[in-house]
Simulated scan of single mutants.
Amino acid sequence: MTDRVAGARHLIFDLDGTLVDSAPDLATALNGLLAEMGKPALTEGTVRSLVGDGAGVLVERGLAASGLGDADRPAALKRFLALYRDCLIDQTRAYPEVEATLELLRAQGHKLGVCTNKPFDPTQRILKALKLDRFFGAVIGGDSLPQRKPDPEPLLAAIAGVGGAVSSAVMIGDSANDVLCARAASVTAILIPSDYGNPAEDADLKLSRFSELPAAIARL
């Protein structure tokens, strides 16, 4: 049995690029949309560079990258979300070490939540399909509130959702949005860089592997 750490924390995680690699399915949906509009597919690497600010911004960036900046964005977003629903968990997987690390963190007494710019419904479906939903006491999606990261309100809502306080909270993510959001909320930021877009330059702590989290949090 793992000993519980003194001073348990309230840990809020980003989703895409932090807990799961969803870029292949996002690319499938975005390229399906572009194909319907008569445009060639973007590479998966290009799509990865566009992810991080929610579905609407991903579609906007994808349209712009394909020379479709003047397209009907609301209609394109609606169609993208329909296509994405059909391939949501075809290739999306949790990163290695995520499930075991979450198990350890929970066993140590930490309370866990999710704060992502991905819409709430696909977020919940992905977490459930990957059997990660059991770890999280609160999930805030990009459409759960009027604001999105890097605004602090979604993070503050996730902290409240797990019964925490700013003083005991930690934001764990892979992008500048996560770090900026944490700073705006006066919350400690831990960065685990990925190959998704909008990289951060610094954070309170920067790790190279997800499995380093328990030891890093114990040092806070």
Rank of each mutant, 00 (worst) to 15 (best):
residue 48 R to N: 06
residue 17 G to V: 00
residue 159 I to C: 01
residue 30 L to Y: 10
residue 174 D to V: 09
residue 158 A to I: 06
residue 152 P to C: 07
residue 41 A to M: 05
residue 122 P to A: 05
residue 209 R to A: 15
residue 64 A to V: 13
residue 94 A to R: 00
residue 15 L to E: 05
residue 75 A to R: 14
residue 108 Q to M: 15
residue 49 S to V: 07
residue 52 G to R: 06
residue 178 D to T: 04
residue 214 P to C: 11
residue 4 R to L: 13
residue 128 K to E: 14
residue 12 I to A: 02
residue 120 F to I: 09
residue 26 L to R: 00
residue 172 I to H: 02
residue 85 R to H: 08
residue 80 F to D: 03
residue 141 G to H: 01
residue 110 H to G: 04
residue 125 R to F: 03
residue 127 L to Q: 01
residue 217 I to D: 08
residue 59 V to C: 13
residue 50 L to M: 15
residue 190 I to N: 01
residue 218 A to N: 13
residue 203 A to T: 03
residue 25 D to N: 02
residue 211 S to D: 14
residue 150 P to L: 05
residue 156 L to I: 09
residue 152 P to E: 04
residue 138 A to Q: 05
residue 71 A to D: 04
residue 68 L to G: 01
residue 109 G to H: 02
residue 112 L to I: 05
residue 138 A to T: 02
residue 63 L to E: 06
residue 18 T to A: 09
residue 83 L to D: 00
residue 197 G to V: 04
residue 66 S to R: 11
residue 213 L to H: 09
residue 137 G to H: 01
residue 197 G to F: 08
residue 181 C to R: 04
residue 73 R to Y: 10
residue 165 A to H: 07
residue 3 D to K: 09
residue 178 D to H: 03
residue 154 P to L: 01
residue 141 G to P: 13
residue 55 A to G: 10
residue 61 R to I: 11
residue 129 A to S: 10
residue 96 P to R: 07
residue 87 C to K: 02
residue 191 L to P: 03
residue 126 I to T: 03
residue 85 R to Q: 11
residue 9 R to N: 05
residue 51 V to Y: 07
residue 169 A to K: 00
residue 103 E to N: 02
residue 20 V to H: 06
residue 174 D to A: 12
residue 122 P to C: 07
residue 189 A to I: 04
residue 69 G to Y: 11
residue 92 T to S: 10
residue 62 G to I: 12
residue 143 D to H: 11
residue 42 L to N: 02
residue 197 G to A: 09
residue 55 A to Q: 06
residue 134 R to C: 11
residue 191 L to S: 10
residue 89 I to N: 03
residue 91 Q to V: 04
residue 2 T to D: 10
residue 88 L to T: 08
residue 153 E to A: 15
residue 161 G to L: 09
residue 124 Q to P: 01
residue 188 T to M: 08
residue 138 A to W: 00
residue 135 F to W: 03
residue 33 L to Q: 07
residue 191 L to N: 07
residue 142 G to N: 03
residue 60 E to P: 04
residue 199 P to K: 09
residue 103 E to Y: 07
residue 72 D to Q: 10
residue 7 G to W: 06
residue 198 N to D: 11
residue 68 L to K: 14
residue 87 C to L: 04
residue 139 V to C: 05
residue 72 D to F: 11
residue 178 D to N: 08
residue 181 C to W: 04
residue 182 A to G: 15
residue 118 K to N: 05
residue 12 I to R: 02
residue 205 L to Y: 15
residue 1 M to S: 14
